[in-house]
């Protein structure tokens, strides 16, 4: 494992925990897209089914279990514990426009036509677009709380670091996984506009608000 990959995993973990803490401490999930969080829970579930079939390393197993546990806890906080604070009126992205095409694509373009492999592929495609309901919500309300911006930034950094990891692995190991790379590129591009706003506004101490 190279440094990019490790830092990528850490920033992914940081993003997930940051969101959980934000909701827990403020007792509110205002401004958070429950739909994006459900999609991430689906992503982790579909991808980490190999927990039951394959042992890779203690690190690998622990991270997968933590990711799954955290994402389900987040969904539970949004839709059950702090349901009253959930901003459902602004969370109106149609998730079927993401789930159906990515599911079809996973059947058509995959490494191997087996159930687990198709589910893994589906999770990779779905992850690349799962943040769209959240970004849509931010654009609809025109702003995001600073901590929500940090969450989105850490999440964007994660896939960007994975891109460097893939360049590294291709260069030094001759390894590449085209499905992960293309989906990872799409995912990173979706964050670019947000990165720009984050650097020009949030880092200068301003709240992220979009021009009307």
């Amino acid at each position: 494992m190279n440094l990019f990959r490790f830092l990528g995993d850490l920033s992914h973990l940081l993003a997930i925990i940051l969101l959980l803490l934000k909701i827990w401490k403020s007792r509110s999930c205002a401004g958070i897209s429950g739909k994006s969080q459900v999609l991430f829970a689906v992503v982790f579930t579909a991808r980490y089914l190999d927990l039951f079939t394959n042992y890779i390393s203690l690190y690998n197993t622990c991270m997968k279990v933590v990711y799954i546990a955290c994402s389900f806890t987040t969904v539970w906080l949004i839709y059950s514990k702090f349901k009253a604070t959930y901003d459902g009126n602004h969370d109106t992205f149609r998730v079927e426009f993401l789930v159906v095409p990515t599911a079809i694509l996973a059947f058509l373009v995959n490494h191997d036509f087996t159930p687990l492999e198709i589910l893994w592929t589906f999770s990779i495609y779905l992850e690349s677009v799962a943040i769209l309901p959240q970004l849509f919500m931010v654009s609809k309300t025109g702003e995001a709380e600073t901590i929500t911006s940090h969450y989105l930034f850490a999440l964007g950094v994660y896939r960007t670091l994975y891109l460097f990891n893939w360049i590294w692995r291709y260069h030094f190991e001759g390894f590449f996984d085209l499905i992960a790379i293309v989906a990872g590129l799409v995912q990173t591009v979706l964050y670019c506009d947000f990165f720009y706003l984050y650097i020009t506004k949030v880092l200068k101490g301003k709240k992220l608000s979009l021009p009307a």
Partner: peptide
Amino acid sequence: AFEMMEKDEL
């Protein structure tokens, strides 16, 4: 046919 190619990335 339930196996999956080994994947170490998360």
